[in-house]
Deep mutational scan, measured.
Amino acid sequence: MASDGVVVEIGKVTGSVGTTVEIPVYFRGVPSKGIANCDFVFRYDPNVLEIIGIDPGDIIVDPNPTKSFDTAIYPDRKIIVFLFAEDSGTGAYAITKDGVFAKIRATVKSSAPGYITFDEVGGFADNDLVEQKVSFIDGGVNVGNATPTKGATPTNTATPTK
């Protein structure tokens, strides 16, 4: 695992066909100046998982989280898009600690492993708008004895992609 920078880890949970599971997305290594904004994309298989919603985690402190935390689910493109932009203008609602960034709610549709993997990152910046190093650890849903650990090695991303 990367020793510096922010680590975004997609949790690994267990479920069975027809059940709804909650998959946490963790941030670790949050910089001392916090995270003022970030955007990134995960990939998944809508034939295996139906993403039914995404909720902000406990490290989102904006009293009205829909102003700073936004997501979009595109089953036709097989992606989930995340956007966080601190909304106070003063840094008061920045992410300042490690913990759960988001909770992905999904219904298991198939007995195949439900991988959720890193696809791309736009950027991560602290309260001074300084770009942060970030790496990703894939996860998803274990169905029966299947284990979604494909790509469990962190993917280092030093520069934003478009």
Results as ranks from 00 to 15, higher is better:
T90R: 15
K12I: 12
A125M: 01
P154W: 10
T161A: 10
T153N: 09
S88I: 03
R43S: 05
G151L: 10
S68T: 07
G18S: 08
N47H: 07
D4I: 14
K150C: 12
K67V: 09
E9C: 05
A106Y: 13
A102N: 13
L129R: 01
I52T: 10
P65C: 07
A85K: 02
F82T: 01
A36H: 00
V134E: 02
T90F: 15
A125E: 01
V121F: 01
F118H: 03
G114I: 05
A94C: 11
N47D: 11
V130L: 07
A158C: 13
V25D: 01
P24Q: 06
S88W: 15
G114F: 07
E50D: 12
D70G: 15
V141T: 12
F82R: 00
L129D: 00
T149S: 10
I137L: 13
S68E: 03
V25P: 03
A72R: 01
D39C: 00
G144P: 12
V7F: 08
K97I: 14
S3H: 05
T149K: 10
D4A: 06
G99H: 05
G34F: 04
T19H: 12
I73A: 01
D45P: 11
V6E: 11
D39Q: 01
F27R: 00
S111Y: 03
D62R: 14
I73H: 09
V8H: 00
T161F: 12
S88A: 06
P63D: 14
K33M: 04
R105T: 10
N156H: 13
I80S: 14
V25L: 10
I80L: 04
N145Y: 13
E120P: 00
V25S: 08
F27T: 11
K67T: 14
A158F: 09
Y74M: 01
G139R: 08
T14N: 07
N142M: 09
V143P: 12
G29V: 14
T147D: 14
I79L: 03
T161L: 08
D128G: 07
A102W: 12
E9P: 12
G144D: 08
V25F: 06
G53Y: 03
I116Q: 12
Y93H: 14
Q132P: 03
D70H: 02
R28I: 08
V7D: 08
N64Q: 15
K97H: 10
F69I: 03
N64V: 05
G53M: 14
K97L: 10
Q132E: 02
D126M: 01
V100Y: 04
T71P: 00
T149R: 11
V108A: 11
K33Y: 01
S135T: 08
V100N: 06
P56D: 11
G11N: 14
P148C: 08
K12M: 14
Y115K: 06
D98M: 07
M1I: 13
V21M: 05
T157C: 14
F118V: 03
I116K: 01
P24W: 09
S16L: 11
S32R: 09
K103G: 13
E22S: 07
I59A: 13
V41G: 00
S32A: 08
Y44Q: 06
P31A: 04
K67D: 06
G57C: 11
D126Q: 02
I116H: 06
V108I: 10
V25C: 02
V7G: 04
R105H: 13
G151Q: 13
T19P: 11
T157V: 09
G5H: 05
E120T: 02
G140C: 09
G34M: 14
L129F: 15
G18H: 10
G140R: 13
F84L: 07
A112P: 07
D45Y: 05
V121K: 13
P75N: 05
S68F: 05
Q132N: 04
V17D: 13
G144A: 13
S110V: 11
I116T: 10
I35A: 08
L49M: 02
K78I: 01
G151F: 13
N64S: 08
N64E: 15
D76F: 02
G99S: 14
D87F: 14
D39N: 00
L49W: 02
D128M: 05
I54K: 00
I54P: 05
K78T: 04
T149F: 11
T153V: 14
I51G: 04
I54V: 04
L83Y: 00
R28S: 12
D87R: 15
P46T: 06
T96S: 10
Y44H: 05
I59T: 13
I23Q: 12
P154D: 14
A146N: 13
A85G: 00
I137M: 08
T20R: 05
Y26F: 06
I60F: 14
V130P: 00
E50H: 08
P154Q: 11
T14A: 11
I104L: 12
P65H: 15
T20F: 15
G139T: 02
T14Y: 05
E9M: 02
N127Y: 02
T71N: 03
S135P: 04
D70I: 15
N47Y: 04
T161I: 10
V25K: 02
G123Y: 00
F27H: 10
L83K: 00
V81W: 01
G91T: 04
Y115E: 06
A106V: 13
T155A: 13
G144M: 10
V25A: 06
D58I: 12
G57H: 04
A92L: 10
K33Q: 03
I79W: 14
A112R: 13
I52D: 05
E86T: 00
T161S: 10
V8D: 15
V61P: 09
V143A: 12
D62W: 14
E131A: 03
V141C: 10
S135W: 03
D45A: 08
D58K: 02
T153L: 11
P148F: 02
K67E: 04
K78V: 03
I51A: 05
G11S: 08
T153M: 06
T96H: 11
T161R: 10
F101N: 11
S135A: 10
V21W: 04
K150P: 12
K97Y: 14
T19K: 13
I104V: 08
L83M: 02
I80E: 15
G29Y: 08
V141H: 13
I80G: 07
P154V: 12
V17A: 10
A102G: 09
